[in-house]
């Protein structure tokens, strides 16, 4: 697991461990925490790039307000990672650029 995370786990009361899959790799998470927290704890990200300028973004408010934590969770695009609790076997993908657009013209 990456060690260069910006976050560390403090001494905590016991809780079950849950394994989720982020970008195809297994990640151990604390039962009850949000997908966004688990991803930040592992030092993963940026979790999305914007449709407008592909600028990198990561969870900002952790309470459902900013929508910077949008991820594809179990096949559902644009899901708020900070409002979704981790579940065993959950599949998480980061979102790059525009979503829900079948074909994007390459005007390079």
């Amino acid at each position: 697991m990456p060690t260069d995370s910006n976050f560390k786990r403090l001494p905590a009361n016991a809780a079950a461990e849950v394994v989720i899959w982020v970008e195809g790799k297994p990640l151990k998470a604390r039962a009850g925490e949000s997908v966004a927290a688990a991803v930040l704890a592992a030092g993963l990200g940026p979790t999305r790039t914007t449709p407008v300028s592909a600028s990198p973004r990561a969870p900002y408010c952790m309470m459902g307000v900013c929508f910077e934590c949008l991820m594809e969770i179990d096949g559902q695009e644009n899901t708020q990672g900070c409002m979704t609790t981790v579940a065993e076997g959950m599949q998480v993908q980061f979102q790059r650029g525009i979503r829900n657009v079948p074909e994007v013209e390459d005007n390079a």
Partner: peptide, 25 residues
Amino acid sequence: WTTPGVMTCGAAQIMLKTSGLAPNG
């Protein structure tokens, strides 16, 4: 303020309360 790594104080507190996570570094 859109840079990854910039968050709100409330966000940090939520991570503390729900995950026991704190900024490292």
